[in-house]
Design a protein around this nucleic acid. Sequence first.
RNA 1: GGAGAGGUGGCCGAGUGGUCGAAGGCACCAGAUUGCUAAUCUGGCGUACUGGCAACGGUACCGAGGGUUCGAAUCCCUCCCUCUCCGCCA
Length: 425
Amino acid sequence: MLDIRLIRDNPDKIKAELAKVSFPPQEVDRLLAADERRRKLQHELDELRARRTRESRELGRMEPAERESRRAQMRALGEQIAEGERELTRAEAEFNRLMLLVPNLPRPWVPAGEGESANSVVRREGEPKQFDFTPLPHWELGEKLGIIDFERGVKLAGSRFYFLVGMGARLERALIAMMLDLKREQGYLELAPPLMVNTETVTGTAHLPKFADTMYRDIEEDYWFVPTAEVPLTNFYAREILDSARLPIYLTAYTPCFRREKMSAGRDVRGIKRGHQFDKVEMVKLVHPETSDAELESLVENACEVCRRLGLAFRVIRMGTGDLGFAAAAKYDVEVWAPGCAEWLEVSSCSNCWDFQARRAQIRFRNEKTGRNEFVHTLNGSGLGLPRTLIAVLENYQQADGSVAIPQALRPYLSGLESISIASR
RNA sequence: GGAGAGGUGGCCGAGUGGUCGAAGGCACCAGAUUGCUAAUCUGGCGUACUGGCAACGGUACCGAGGGUUCGAAUCCCUCCCUCUCCGCCA
């Protein structure tokens, strides 16, 4: 959520900024009209209530005889106030509805452009591995080794579900453990959060109200399955005021994530690249606004380090305004090279949400300098997404004989095991 | 799921219809004072919206939402949460 005062004070500037992320200017006008109406009603109501308090007190001190006559007019005032409250409630609901649909403003340095047009590679590290045989895609490798079972996933749940079997499951578990240990080294506090959260929580990170159809939910109990651990991690301190000495706060969690993937129906249906359920290690930072830009850079670096330890070639993409999404003010993706399916796989997406989520979730800190409570800045990034990392490991470490070598960094988590072959599963 | 108890400011804890945004204590901040870590005294000390250049005002918030009333932290209803006991269960 943006600061309404910012919009109120510089409507034209904000309209221009929002146009960069395809938000129509007339929506800003609607919002301002709703704001004005709400404030006018609020003010009128305040005056009526002040009058009631004052006169009710007088009434209490009156002689009984005198009271009765005043009661009637006080009752009328009460009705007027009740009507005013109903009207204000409606006006506020409309205002809030509109506010929650306004996307975040991009940082000034984010290149402007439609869609992916303004995205650019800002860094590469490691060379895509060369093979003296034709590397297989992971779906073939996985089936040959018997470590990914697509058919039974489909049998039990449907399209986009699969089992990891034996060494496949162990390899993923090793990756998770390795990532979490690295996150701890990098200063993150590990949490094991709820995987189902309420509407308020999902609204806090801005997955609601706009993206309701991308998530699974239990309507009866008002539970939403988390689409990413960003939701519970960012909301950990929702509606709290933090001591500034505690900032920055780094949180991490391994969780399954649940997504409907309606938008990508028919895309990436092969393999384990995109499922309705996947595992991810997530990083979230709550930081002082002054350090926010620098914290995004180090967040990306924290994600890159996972790739580096796994010996995977990767590149970092800076997203242009057209690809920022709803909540991000700036965003980088990290992609690793997968030689089997011959593509760069997005294994991490690192966003700085500025005060956008903090305002929704009301995460504040006491600013010693100003003596005021201000919103923290929130950042989040994958560190990393498991299926795609698993794809990259399998495809990059495959050998001519059909086995897959275990990256050095994972061996301590697999009793020193050096490779996966059909025999070892 | 059943029975009971309870949810008040950072914490503890008063408050059962009016002058209560809420006593008191602790913690915290500022100042004063006493030569030792510390004690004492004085003052300050919630959040948000809003009017005003400011001084200083107004309104809302005592788990949430409704209701009764001229007036609700206080009475009534519904819901949520916590605790205790019983039942059930991974």
